[in-house]
Design a protein around this nucleic acid. Structure first.
Lengths: 359, 359
DNA sequence: TTGTACGCGTTATCAC
DNA sequence: GTGATAACGCGTACAA
């Protein structure tokens, strides 16, 4: 592997001159430049970033620590991050914690060792330990997607509370009173915010019961479990709110098994849209998060922090969600004659189940 | 940021001794070890990988260069890669080329500069230039997902030809004779292989026409275009083969607009399954690629190559696809009375369209 | 415009 | 079992 010295020798100049040519730093006569460039081409010299970083203290590399890149929401965030990073000439390290604190800390340690210029973190639980590690090593962090209890880092996230509020209001306006939230873990801020926002909608609405709250994980399996639990409540809720995309899918699967139709038997709204690329015929009423923009903004904030340096004041960017009303939220609720309902039940159920065996 | 020397000073030893404690290299008395460990804890020392890499020539970092991590197939591959890398103590750099040769080469250059220990490459077009760059810098490469014209690197991929053959045979056995392949770009090996496999199925079948072949991109938009073209052929094909997941989605969307029902009016099979997490009610008959395993195996092969060193003989791992028969391929084709068909057409079409507005 | 000397933080080599 | 020294490849500071 040729080094800068090899190039210098071949071109008959000093190493520093080669450095100047490569980096465009300092003056070089055009003749010398030509000689150097030719030498570079001839021996196929590629500058060694490692050596450069050792001196410059910059690696032009950032890291994204998230829970699971397989979740289409985070996939899109990650893509936004990568594009923005690439535009800024940065490379991207990526890590999946699966919501585990230990892995989060392990990854952050590895990232700090590698002297990454900055870290984008979707904190697994509290995230405080990880952030502290970064502060100790003077490495900028931007927290993505989730709030922090204490203001110890910049944050870029979507307005979970507002989105859930809108979804709740939709249901309330359609006349739903008995509702349930199928939510994520207690310690995750998005879960808390979505519950709070949804609750608020029904606190505003007159003569509506407060929603029943189920807490689980942001997974399909948990969505199924919570759907089963929610539908076992008597009297049944008339509307459900799935607090993320995976829960929503689990809910749909479970309801199908229970022969409960959406939206005929129960209305359903959810957080997170599924990418158009993955859904042939969109059906769910959702509060869509601007995932790609979140990724981009996160990088922008990180770059800003990287140039500014540490402060005591942190920024918080809260991006609005977009309400997308589709079929799953149903029409206005009206009193149904239980007999006539069961009369048409068999047929419409069959139709529904069969036809749903599409994407 | 404390260095190894700071630790050494504090512990009253030489830097190299600290190094031995940290890396477990060389002998250290338990007393000295204790002193050093305490000093490390006290000042919060974290080894600097950059400096270490400069000497050791290893960065414990690999890179994954793919076309688009947003494609659920590659998302899953990437997750398999990350998990395997993490198990091996490696970090992962990730890059999206969007099938552009220039970006591929740009990224590879950046990766080589950073002295990554190895590269996993999903070549955009030929990929030869990128592979050559890597060879020049003695950096191991494993080509993922796609074949190479020339055997210049290890390859881990799925059996595109075999999977397409199976899908073709399914259709042939159901009595289809007029078929069309909606495929990817000419220079991409998976596209070629899938066309070839599908063709073979109908070459085997007696009295079947060779499939009509459409070439586009691996995108939804292209899927729509090709579906439109294919359905404009007279007489219409009775079955379509979408050569990847995005094309399949585009096809479904376009057929819906054309009021063509699947599988009633045209049968559809496709390559790539959509992750269970993204599809509520699976519908497509597919040849599913073992994406996660591909990711894992790719890392295994790369690790192998990293320890073995360069050779003239390369490995090729071809993983089998899994045939999953669902509703979209339909039942056996029978002669239909065109009149009765149009008679029921209106109603069943409405039902189909309405009910499809699910996921 | 070009070059020399040195240091970034770590580890390999060799000596004690 | 421990340490001094040099070297990894590059860029800053200063000199010519």
């Amino acid at each position: 592997m040729p080094t800068i010295v090899d190039v210098a020798t071949r071109a008959g100049v000093a190493a520093i001159t080669v450095s100047r040519v490569v980096n465009g730093s300092g003056p070089v006569s055009s003749q010398v430049r030509a000689r150097v460039e030719q030498a570079i081409a001839e021996i196929g010299y590629v500058p060694n970033s490692i050596a450069r970083s050792l001196r410059s203290k910059r690696t032009d590399t950032i890291a994204l620590v998230l829970t699971d890149m397989t979740n289409p929401f985070f996939t899109t965030v990650a893509r936004g991050v990568e594009d923005a990073a690439s535009d800024a000439g940065l490379m991207l390290l990526i890590c999946n914690t699966d919501e585990r604190d230990v892995d989060e800390q392990r990854y952050v340690r590895m990232i700090l060792q590698r002297q990454a210029d900055g870290i984008l973190l979707v904190p697994a639980r509290g995230g405080v330990a990880a952030i502290k590690q970064c502060r100790d090593h003077e490495t900028p962090v931007v927290v993505v997607d989730r709030r922090l209890r204490e203001r110890v880092a910049d944050v870029v996230r979507a307005d979970s509370r507002g989105g859930a509020l809108e979804l709740g209001r939709i249901l309330a306006s359609l006349g739903h009173s008995r509702t349930a939230v199928l939510s994520g873990p207690l310690s995750v801020s998005t879960a808390d915010d979505r519950v709070a926002g949804f609750r608020k909608a029904f606190a505003e609405a007159h003569q509506a019961e407060p929603p029943r709250v189920f807490r689980g994980e942001y997974t399909i399996e948990s969505g199924r479990t919570m759907a089963r639990q929610a539908m076992a409540v008597i009297p049944r809720p008339t509307a459900l709110f799935a607090a993320n995309n995976f829960i929503a899918i689990g809910v749909l699967q479970e309801l199908d098994e229970l022969h409960v139709r959406v939206p005929e038997d129960v209305a359903l709204v959810a957080f997170d849209d599924l990418p158009q690329a993955m859904v042939t015929f969109p059906f769910l009423t959702v509060a869509a998060q601007p995932a790609y923009e979140m990724g981009q903004r996160s990088v922008a904030v990180l770059l800003d922090r990287m140039s500014t340096g540490a402060t005591e004041t942190f920024h918080e960017v809260v991006l609005p969600t977009q309400l997308v009303v589709r079929r799953s939220s149903g029409d206005a609720l009206r009193e149904r004659d239980p007999h006539s309902q069961s009369a048409v039940g068999a047929l419409s159920r069959m139709t529904s189940v069969t036809s749903r065996r599409l994407e």
